[in-house]
């Protein structure tokens, strides 16, 4: 059977993650939520520690802690603080607390690298089901609320006047971010999840004239980076997660150059 091959499972995991991250990543870029993504993703390490301590599945622990972190940030942003600094504190404080917590758990011998940088080659069928389930959930939720979210992103006041509550849209995006963190942890690891959110979206910006095309293109470029990164990692025997992000960054550089050339030609 095809799924018996670890490379096929890895490729499918990468594709599922790229789909969800590409769509959500556009909103992260448009709304300047990169630090928001970092804080939520870094909290995943704390989730790993808690799931070891309480003998939960890693997925449960990571999803729960990412969700709590996302909701904390949502509540803080409601109060309109200078968010940059607070998010920086949360992102790095959360990561440090997770690393300390993992070290404190007695008898736990885990390969922390797998959670920091991903370990897509050991993806199981159950992992695949979680990744694709999560990715489809994110895609369906975003698609069904797309217009309301886009209006709220352009201007909260325009949304209010049209009877859309922009805070509700922000909350849904927050929940989706936690879902993507849970989905992507196995593929690229906590440290590079934000990269998978923003780099394909940023690369897609160079070629898109509408928000929808940018989102579709971001997903496609993310998928290309996932497959290309997997292939290159096999060739050069490098870690898959960072290689995928390197390919995505390469695509961004190429896209930006091509965009510049096109602008110069008018």
């Amino acid at each position: 059977m095809m799924l018996d091959d670890f490379l096929v499972r890895a490729a499918l995991a990468g594709l599922g993650t790229a789909l969800a991250a590409g769509l959500l990543g556009c909103f992260v870029v448009w709304r300047r939520m990169a630090y928001f993504g970092d804080a939520t993703a870094h909290a995943a390490i704390l989730g790993v520690a808690l799931s070891l301590a309480f003998h939960l599945s890693v997925l449960t622990g990571v999803a729960a802690v990412a969700l709590v972190m996302a909701l904390i940030i949502f509540a803080l942003s409601e109060r309109g603080h200078g968010m940059d600094t607070v998010l920086g504190v949360l992102a790095h404080g959360g990561l440090a607390a997770g690393l300390v917590a993992v070290a404190l758990i007695p008898g736990a011998r885990i390969n922390l690298d797998a959670y920091l940088f991903g370990d897509v080659l050991t993806v199981t069928r159950l992992d695949l089901a979680v990744i694709w389930g999560g990715a489809l959930l994110v895609a369906v939720v975003l698609w069904s609320r797309w217009s309301a979210m886009l209006t709220a992103t352009l201007s909260p006041d325009l949304a209010y006047a049209a009877g859309i509550d922009p805070r509700r849209e922000q909350l849904v995006l927050t929940l989706m971010l936690a879902a993507v963190v849970a989905v992507a942890l196995k593929v690229v690891g906590a440290l590079l999840i934000t990269a998978l959110l923003i780099i394909p979206a940023a690369a897609a910006r160079n070629f898109a004239r509408t928000p929808e095309r940018m989102a579709a293109l971001a997903s496609a470029l993310g998928a290309l980076a996932a497959l290309g990164g997997l292939r290159l990692a096999m060739w050069f025997d490098t870690p898959v997660g960072p290689t995928v992000v390197c390919v995505a960054a390469g695509l961004f550089a190429l896209g930006t150059l091509a965009g510049q050339v096109r602008t110069m030609r008018g």
């Binding site: 709304r31 300047r32 217009s147 886009l150 949304a159 910006r205 928000p211 929808e212 095309r213």
Partner: peptide
């Protein structure tokens, strides 16, 4: 409109319906 958000006039007119 954030410069990272591409949107044509026609697409803008479709918001929110």
């Amino acid at each position: 409109i954030d410069p990272t958000l591409p949107i044509t006039v026609r697409r803008f007119l479709n918001l929110p319906h």
